[in-house]
Simulated assay, not measured.
Amino acid sequence: MDLRQLEIFVCVAERLNFTESAKYLYLTQSAVSLQIADLEKQLGVKLFARNTHSVQLTAAGRVFLQEAKFIIAAMEEALMKTRHTASGFEGTLKVGFLESHTKHFLPKLVKDFRHSYPRIKILLAQLNWGDLNMALEHGDVDIGLTMSVSLQNTPRVVWQPLYQDVECFVMSDDHPLANQSHLDFADLTREPFIVLNRQVAPCPYDFTFQLCANRGFTPKVVERPYLTEILLTLVECGEGIAILPYFTTKPYASPSLRFFKLEGEDACVEMVASWKRTNRNRSIPLFLNKAKKAVQFFQSTMELPDVPECKKTKDGDPV
């Protein structure tokens, strides 16, 4: 088993298509199939369930995919660390982050980075959504840890996904709807909503309204706090309900808050590491590799539970 085999496996596992993977890898389809067959033989397990119509990962394949990604990332980091150590690499990396969305992985990430690269000075800046976008575009920060929905109108900024998230309706556990097996959108049209102030979070503000519009109603906004933690406090007090990403919010949310998962592709968002396309800071790829490792444990230990869903009819209109 070598690194190239792992890269071929990851490529096929992510695409679930041998023909597309072969084109991407500039290999023949038979060469890709032989590498996968050899890998399965070495491991003594089937990684893919294949028939004439589809390719799917087996349970063993899903586990091996996570491990293979970890091995590849570790090897890439080892190579970069060795090269930079040999050249006496040092420098400064400025990292901007949102007020509460990164607290579940940022401390570990920063400590690991400083331990591995003691000659790189890392500077941290907590910024609101709008200011973080401006800092990225103006070069005031090298890396921005933010949500993908905030970067839709920033063509000069690129990003790397760290983990997938899903938007949820959030309410206090004593709310009249909190014990429902599912929520009807018709019920939500009468509920007061709490959203982050558009002055500090223009993209999330607009995104909330778009999610509601896609489900056939306009939220009745009663509060517009400037901080997510204040927003959660207001929800817990029963002032209204909110729409927030589950994985990003749940680690620091009160246990007395109830989450209802939104269905639909438009409710899927990502926590990302972003940077200006023209930024040539050599510390950025080092930080990105560390970020992937920092969220790996978080991803593997906190899966989306079987939370209640919000239902709608087949044609997309509210029930």
Rank of each mutant, 00 (worst) to 15 (best):
L3Y: 02
Q5M: 06
L6W: 07
L6E: 07
I8G: 05
I8V: 13
F9R: 01
V10S: 07
C11N: 06
E14G: 02
A22Q: 02
Y24I: 08
L27P: 04
Q29T: 09
Q29V: 05
Q29R: 15
S30Q: 15
A31E: 15
V32K: 13
S33H: 09
S33T: 13
S33D: 14
L34W: 12
A37R: 13
D38G: 10
E40C: 11
Q42F: 11
V55G: 02
A59S: 08
G61C: 08
F64N: 07
K69T: 00
A73Y: 13
A73T: 15
E77Q: 13
L79H: 14
M80I: 14
K81H: 12
R83T: 14
H84F: 15
S87N: 13
E90M: 12
V95H: 01
G96F: 02
S100M: 05
K103D: 14
H104N: 09
L106G: 01
P107G: 01
P107I: 02
K108M: 05
L109F: 08
K111D: 14
H115G: 13
Y117F: 09
K121P: 07
L124P: 03
L127R: 01
D131R: 10
H138T: 15
G139M: 11
G139K: 05
G139Q: 08
I143M: 01
L145F: 02
L145R: 00
T146S: 03
S150K: 10
L151R: 04
L151I: 11
L151H: 03
Q152N: 12
T154V: 03
P155G: 12
P155S: 14
R156G: 12
V157T: 07
V158G: 09
V158W: 11
L162Q: 07
D165M: 03
C168D: 08
C168I: 01
F169E: 01
F169W: 10
Q180V: 08
L183D: 01
A186S: 07
A186M: 09
D187E: 00
L188Y: 03
T189W: 06
E191L: 01
P192V: 04
F193M: 06
F193S: 06
V195F: 10
L196C: 02
N197E: 03
N197M: 03
P202K: 04
Y205N: 04
F207P: 00
F207K: 10
Q210G: 11
Q210W: 07
L211F: 10
C212K: 00
A213L: 12
A213K: 12
A213G: 11
N214Y: 11
N214T: 07
R215I: 04
R215W: 03
G216S: 15
K220P: 11
R224V: 11
T228Y: 03
I230A: 10
L234V: 09
V235E: 11
E239F: 12
I241T: 06
A242H: 00
P245S: 05
Y246C: 01
F247Y: 15
T248I: 12
T249S: 03
K250F: 10
A253S: 06
S254Q: 03
F259P: 02
F260W: 04
G264Y: 08
V269I: 15
W275V: 09
K276W: 02
K276F: 07
R277E: 11
T278Y: 13
N279W: 05
R280I: 05
R282F: 15
L286C: 08
L288G: 00
N289S: 13
K293Y: 09
E303L: 11
L304N: 07
L304P: 02
K311N: 04
K312M: 14
T313W: 09
G316K: 12
V319R: 06
V319I: 06
